[in-house]
Design a binder for these strands. Structure first.
Length: 666
DNA sequence: GTGAGTTGTT
């Protein structure tokens, strides 16, 4: 195998040392001394000097010193000189098993999978017998495809029960698609399980989303053996598979136990859980905790903080972390750009996009473009967005993914260019998913293009690529043109196909606890007070001229029942709870898993006006900042804005402003 | 003289 050209010039060469050591006037240290020097060498230059010395000594130490060769390999690798380190094996005649295994390990841990396999094959053909070290190293380079062959070799050499090899196998089976069956087979046969092998198996379960199995195994590990990695895997497993509350609870449990000490990874996983449920107070607490403990604020921790603050509704704090970050990589920039975009600060997002390439000298990635296109879509910057989309391929050589097409379709759709958006979906090189269709359908509803909307929906139902949202949108479209037969038809279709509308859940964090509400929920301890407040809110806004928009209600109900069903939408329960449990004038932060319905959007604007409260609401799509009767999203639907404006103008004529805040928030 | 499990952005 040929070594890389840089190596032959930058590594000391044998031919440079033509004379013996005595001729150069030095007495070379003995091999043992050189080995010690290599182990504690602090610079590459020193390693190179020692390397040169070893080569000189080789003149009378033949063939070569295998231990020194190995130490040299490790010294180069530890200074990040991977290619120097690997080229040593190519310059060695008949490398021994130690050097082979070490080199395979270096290649594997540095992502040079092909190199690792070439070395492995070279080893096999050299009649050297691989051992457990070799396999634990080569397994790190295995994919789900190649693992079967290597597993066979493992069995052939009788190493299937070695704890390191078996752990490696479990780890590979857990990666990629995740072959739990094979992973479990290996794991079950292990005569002795260490915390490391159990953690590999827990990871495998967690990656499958089987958090119950993961937790069960985690609980089986004796408490004294659980190290921080196993806690991290479990916390992150919850956080990444739809159990953010469990992740936070487990983090609290870890703190209560006092050991092991949380590290950078623990806080990144926990912050991600906070972002998902909008637990701002918990997120802030963790930020303080990081500052107080010895946790390094590295770029990943910074990014997790930026993401947490922006997703929890505090863009200001996200910006402050971003500005103070000592080092920012493209991921950190992406998180900040996405933060601006989701809050509707589109100009700032675009400014950052320029700064990132200018002062910071970083190249945008496909994710940067998702964020910037979203910024354009949220602000209705159609021309900028289209230009951005085109430049992505033309100037940056980034192939658009379905997410980018999604932004483009939403951008054009919202602007009323429905036909053009439709054409884009039809001409994409990939299959459209339900997300992109829902976006176009939403625009059809927004723009009142019932004909196109109906055509698309029927096509989707025929092709069976629907989600519950498709049916809801279709029903809403029928309702908006008062076609109640159509509404009934959709309803029976949903019943027939047993499609259940995804339940809307709204959450609000009060006193470091997250309170969740579903529509009509009566599970909360203060349910009685909450409903009293809900009714009070309805009376107030109705007395100001608000009329419920019952078209948004899908169920077959009488008009008054429809009103009642709107009244107890999850976001209204969350707002009511916020009003009775926080100080007057303090902002409310509400989080919803679905998009806020247009009626609730109107109502929330009115409540913000009457109570003088700022209400920040995060829905599936973006943030809405309700202040003094208007919303930062610029009202995603026309009728909604007209309704609110009318109500507010009539109301101020009656001179009723301010009553609410005195009577209801004391 | 060699080896194991965990982390961020849509």
């Amino acid at each position: 195998m040929a070594s890389s050209p840089i190596l032959t010039t930058s590594l000391p060469q044998k031919q440079l040392t033509t004379s013996s050591s005595s001729a150069a006037g030095f007495r070379l240290p003995p091999p043992e001394k050189l080995a010690v020097l290599l182990d504690k060498s602090e610079s590459v230059d020193l390693v190179k000097q020692i390397h040169a010395a070893i080569l000189r000594r080789n003149l009378f130490l033949h063939p070569y010193h295998p231990v020194l060769n190995l130490k040299l390999h490790r010294a180069y690798a530890s200074h990040g000189k991977i290619h120097h380190s690997l080229s040593l094996i190519h310059q060695t005649i008949d490398p021994d098993l130690f050097l082979f295994s070490a080199a395979i390990n270096t290649a594997s841990t540095n992502g040079l999978r092909d190199q690792a396999f070439l070395l492995y094959f070279q080893l096999l053909s050299s009649e050297t017998v691989p051992n457990e070290f070799t396999f634990s190293s080569i397994l790190k380079s295995c994919s789900t495809q190649s693992v079967k062959a290597v597993h066979t070799h493992v069995l052939k050499f009788g190493l299937g029960l070695d704890p390191y090899v078996a752990t490696g196998l479990v780890d590979v089976y857990a990666r990629g698609g995740g072959d739990v069956v094979s992973a479990q087979k290996v794991f079950d046969r292990m005569p002795e399980r260490s915390i490391v092998s159990s953690t590999a198996m827990i990871t495998c379960y967690a990656k499958q989303g089987n958090v119950e199995a993961a937790r069960a195994l985690f609980e089986r590990v004796p408490e004294t053996e659980r190290d921080i990695v196993s806690w991290n895997v479990m916390i992150d497993g919850y956080a990444q598979h739809g159990f953010p509350c469990e992740a936070l609870m487990l983090f609290r449990e870890l703190l209560a136990k006092g050991r092991p000490k949380p590290d950078e990874i623990t806080v990144v996983a926990t912050l991600s859980a906070c972002s998902q449920i909008g637990a701002l107070e918990s997120g802030r607490w963790i930020h303080v905790f990081i500052k107080r403990s010895r946790i390094r604020v590295n770029v990943k921790v910074c990014t997790a903080l930026i993401d947490m603050y922006s997703k929890c509704g505090s863009l200001e704090e996200a910006v402050s972390v971003f500005n103070d970050a000592p080092r920012k990589d493209v991921v950190a920039w992406n998180a900040m750009i996405a933060g601006y975009a989701v809050h509707g600060y589109s100009q700032d997002a675009l400014r950052l996009f320029d700064e990132m390439q200018g002062t910071a000298g970083l190249q945008p990635t496909d994710i940067t473009f998702v964020a910037t296109l979203q910024a354009c879509a949220h602000a209705g910057l159609v021309e900028e967005g289209v230009r951005m989309f085109e430049s992505m391929g033309q100037e940056y050589g980034i192939k658009p993914k379905i997410e980018h097409y999604g932004c483009l379709v939403s951008l054009l759709g919202r602007a009323g260019r429905l036909k053009q958006a439709y054409e884009i979906i039809k001409n994409m090189e990939m299959e459209a998913d339900s997300v992109i269709w829902s976006s176009l359908l939403g625009s059809c509803k927004l723009r009142g293009d019932f004909v196109l909307g109906k055509e698309i929906t029927e096509y989707l139902i025929r092709r069976n690529i629907t989600n519950s949202g498709t049916y809801v949108l279709l029903s809403n479209m029928y309702a908006s043109v008062s076609d109640y037969e159509g509404v009934a038809k959709v309803r029976s279709l949903m019943k027939e196909k047993t499609i259940v509308k995804e339940p809307g859940v709204s959450a609000i964090e009060v006193d470091d606890r997250v309170h969740e509400f579903r529509a009509g929920d009566r599970n909360h301890l203060q349910s009685k007070e909450i409903y009293t407040m809900v009714r009070k809110m309805s009376e107030r806004i109705k007395s100001c001229g608000y009329v419920p928009d019952t078209d948004a209600v899908l169920q077959d109900l009488e008009e008054t029942e429809k009103e009642e069903s709107l009244e107890v939408h999850s976001e209204r329960l969350a707002i009511a709870y916020g009003l009775i449990s926080t100080k007057p004038g303090s902002p409310l932060r509400i989080f919803k898993n679905l998009r806020v319905c247009s009626d609730c959007h109107t109502v929330t604007k009115l409540i913000s006006k009457i109570t003088g409260r700022k209400i920040v609401m995060r829905d599936r799509n973006r943030f809405h900042h309700f202040v003094d009767g208007s919303c930062s999203c610029g009202d995603f639907c026309g009728p909604c804005k007209r309704r609110t404006d009318q109500i507010l103008s009539d109301w101020s004529k009656k001179g009723k402003a301010g009553i609410w805040s005195r009577s209801c928030t004391a």
